[in-house]
Design a protein around this nucleic acid. Structure first.
Length: 526
RNA sequence: GACCCUAUGGUCAAGUGGUUAAGACAUCGCCCUUUCAAGGCGGUAACGGGGGUUCGAAUCCCCCUAGGGUCACCA
């Protein structure tokens, strides 16, 4: 009578049991990421991979990588390599799959064709599937007709009951048949989804879909079911776009006498305009974000937060904590819009919090790319890179920004920021003040931040000006910029010689006459 | 069009019948300060609409609306 109450009591007992047994599940979790190699690893695909990986690592299960290369036209070897490279870069390692194998291999569907063939044959023998000789053209014509008549464009079962003679005749015409699944005409198919709950589909709304194409390749729905079962997968965690396919797959599991795995359809990731994420929305692949200077930590952290949330309010979570806290129960149901700004903020966080050595390693390729250091950096370049990154990384949000932010430490031929020139070089007496500063700098010993600062502040006092009036023009003179690290640290790293040279250059620049640009000063120094 | 999913600030989100409806990003202001960041403090900003159920609904039910997904010999 009081079932709900009984369940309420039972639940804790079972979870206590699981705890008591050290979390050893009755059935070991096996999940997979199954991309089709038709492009780079998409941010949405990356998150699906991440959730599967997290679930496997959280439960101590197995994470399988399977390549769904049954689309001969669109699949490429280059894509396989790119996807694998991106997964590796993100640190999403697999326990079974390409490159490492496993007892359920091969892990490329194109190498498992005999399996699908066998299973399709089995279904035909059981009377649950049949050969269909309709050509794509004929089917398209029928769909068109149905559309015009306002009927749903479903396959009409034309070849469902062909006799052997009819088959032979059609085959003699040179027609290559496909194999179709006989979908029950009545009843309903239930998908029990861990995230969506119970979703019911009417079988009458499904048509006899194709299992094996005329070229002998299996279709997605068929290969997926055959493999997910053959590979012993327990949970199918995939994007919501597959939810509508799932009743077909459930029907196949039943027809083949397979146990149906648990499904979890995670919400989609959408572009800012709420449409499906695509190239026109800028960077969408892991590789592109990497090129733009995002760290894997930031991408993983951000992706984990898209559609899943931890119990507390902390959002900056190291991987180990995400693994520890991850659960399917806390995955949300609604689609999420991809917000690069937040990921950029997270990236900035990791840029300043991760060990310096790590950031230097990550930044080096970007410095090379910007032409700041050579392919084989010298000791001196490496030292300067490390020191300048230490000073600059707090203010950068990406590695690209970071490389730009340290550029003047490596290059002398920078130009002066235009607004900065108007603001800090134009005022009367600037050249003279810089000349005084230069003179003072010559005798600064040692040339470290504290000593330089003392010299500057003393000089400012002697000249009766605010330190800022010395500091700003100097910053512009030695870095070409109005923003950057603390000036005295910056100068110390730059070294005495370069500082003097750059001050000389700035003095010459000012005395050569500033380019006219409206009023040089609208706020006379009070 | 049919079917399916979803609906809390601009965005990500917490919330599971009783809360002043968290937090984060973004944004605005102030503080700190040689600049820019970072950091600190504070502000603006939300339960799509309509019906129910209930003493009481962001939370449960129905309808509408909106967005998304699927309807291929793509996956």
């Amino acid at each position: 009578m009081q079932f709900p109450a009984a369940c309420g009591i039972l639940k804790p007992v079972t979870s206590l049991l699981a705890e008591a047994t050290g979390g050893i599940a009755v059935e070991k979790v096996r999940v997979r990421f199954a991309p089709s190699p038709t492009g780079k690893l998409h941010i949405g695909g990356a998150r699906t991979a991440l959730f599967n990986w997290l679930f496997a690592r959280h439960t101590g299960g197995t994470f399988v990588l399977r390549i769904e290369d049954t689309d001969l036209e669109r699949s490429t070897q280059a894509s396989v390599e790119q996807i694998i490279a991106s997964l590796k870069w993100l640190g999403l390692d697999w326990d079974e799959g390409p490159e490492i194998g496993g007892e359920y291999g091969p892990y490329f569907q194109s190498q498992r064709l005999h399996l699908y063939e066998d299973k399709a044959q089995e279904l035909i023998e059981k009377g649950l599937a049949y050969l269909c000789y309709c050509t794509p053209e004929e089917l398209e014509a029928k769909r068109e007709e149905a559309r015009r008549a306002g009927r749903p464009p479903r396959y009409d079962g034309h070849c469902r009951n062909l006799s052997e003679e009819e088959c032979a005749k059609l085959a003699a015409e040179g027609r290559q048949p496909v194999i179709r699944f006989k979908v029950p005409e009545t009843g309903e198919t239930v998908v029990e989804d861990l995230i969506r709950g119970r979703v019911v589909f009417q079988n009458s709304l499904l048509d006899d879909f194709v299992l094996i194409k005329s070229n002998g390749m299996p279709t997605y729905n068929f290969a997926c079911v055959v493999d997910d079962h053959a590979m012993g997968l327990t949970h199918i965690i995939r994007a919501e776009e597959h939810l509508s396919n799932t009743p077909r797959q459930v029907l196949l599991y039943q027809a083949l006498g397979y146990e149906v795995p648990k499904f979890a359809h995670v919400p989609m990731i959408l572009a800012p305009d709420r449409s499906k994420l695509s190239k026109r929305h800028g960077a969408t692949s892991v590789e592109e974000f990497r090129e733009q200077g995002y760290l894997k930590e930031a991408i993983i952290n951000y992706l984990a937060l898209l559609g899943w949330s931890p119990e507390g309010t902390e959002e900056i979570l190291p991987l180990e904590r995400i693994v520890k806290e991850f659960s399917l129960e806390r995955i949300s149901k609604n689609a999420a819009i991809y917000d690069v700004k937040k990921m950029t903020w997270i990236n900035g966080h990791y840029l300043r919090e991760l060990p310096l050595e790590r950031i230097v390693t990550e930044a080096l390729p970007f410095l090379k790319n910007a032409g700041l250091i050579g392919e084989e950096p010298t000791e001196e370049e490496l030292r300067l890179a490390k020191e300048s990154i230490a000073l600059t990384r707090d203010r950068a949000k990406t590695l690209v920004e970071l490389a730009d932010g340290v550029s003047y430490f490596f290059k002398d031929d920078f130009t002066y920021d235009e607004k900065g020139v108007q603001k800090h070089f134009a005022p009367e007496g600037t050249a003279e003040r810089l000349r005084k500063a230069r003179e003072r700098l010559v005798s600064v010993e040692p040339f470290d931040a504290a000593t330089i600062e003392t010299a500057y502040r003393t000089l400012a006092d002697e000249l009766g000006v605010k330190a800022a009036e010395l500091i700003h023009p100097t910053r512009l003179a030695v870095s070409g910029r109005t923003i950057g690290p603390g000036l005295f640290e910056l100068m110390a790293l730059l070294g005495q010689e370069k500082c003097l040279t750059r001050l000389d250059r700035a003095i010459r620049f000012i005395e050569a006459g500033l380019p006219a640009a409206g009023q040089a000063e609208d706020a006379p120094q009070a």
